Amino acid sequence: MAETMLQIMGRHYPIRCRDGEEAHLQHLAGLIEQKARDAQQNSPGMTEVRSLLFAALFLADEVNELKREAAGRQSQLPLSDEDEPAARAVEALAARIEKLRERLAVGAAHA
């Protein structure tokens, strides 16, 4: 297990991660840092916590938009007759996974 130091909004955060993931985490911290700085520039005097909250909201909005775009593109992909059985199999697996998730959630609630 590796450890790296992330700096966000002038604070240092020691983070443990899998070996080799240090550079990726540094990159992600840079994205968070930039969004937090953008939030502070747009609303001077904002507290650090609120800046980080807005950074998280900005990033979540970007992820949500990318997911919507990907779903839209995926629905536009033409399926050939050869792809139809595979698509049905994937849909059936997704339904089974969802049922399993629901059962696990119910089991966790009763534990």
Rank of each mutant, 00 (worst) to 15 (best):
M1W: 12
M1T: 15
A2L: 02
A2D: 02
E3G: 05
M5L: 15
M5I: 15
M5N: 13
L6S: 10
L6G: 09
L6C: 07
Q7F: 02
Q7T: 11
M9S: 12
M9T: 06
R11F: 12
H12K: 08
H12V: 02
Y13A: 11
Y13S: 04
Y13L: 14
P14W: 06
I15E: 08
I15P: 09
R16G: 09
C17V: 08
R18D: 13
D19S: 14
D19T: 12
G20D: 00
E21K: 07
E21L: 08
E21C: 07
E22M: 01
A23T: 11
Q26A: 08
A29S: 10
G30E: 01
G30L: 00
L31E: 03
I32P: 06
K35M: 13
K35C: 09
R37D: 12
D38K: 08
A39W: 02
Q40T: 06
Q41Y: 07
N42L: 14
S43F: 05
P44C: 07
G45M: 12
G45T: 03
T47A: 04
T47E: 01
E48H: 00
V49P: 03
V49A: 08
V49Q: 06
S51W: 01
L52R: 07
A55Q: 04
A55W: 00
L57K: 00
F58L: 11
F58H: 07
L59E: 03
L59Q: 01
A60S: 08
D61H: 14
D61G: 15
V63Q: 01
V63H: 00
N64K: 15
E65N: 08
L66Y: 11
L66I: 10
K67R: 03
K67L: 13
R68N: 10
R68D: 09
E69L: 08
E69H: 07
A70W: 10
G72R: 06
R73E: 15
R73V: 15
S75T: 03
Q76C: 12
L77G: 02
L77M: 04
L77C: 09
P78K: 05
L79E: 11
L79P: 13
D81V: 07
E82P: 07
E84N: 09
P85W: 14
A86H: 10
A87Q: 12
R88V: 14
A89E: 12
A89N: 12
V90E: 11
E91F: 05
A92Q: 06
A94L: 12
A94D: 05
A95K: 02
A95S: 05
A95I: 01
I97D: 03
I97R: 04
I97A: 10
E98D: 14
L100S: 14
L104F: 06
L104W: 00
L104D: 08
A109F: 03
A109Y: 08
H110R: 01
A111E: 04
A111M: 06
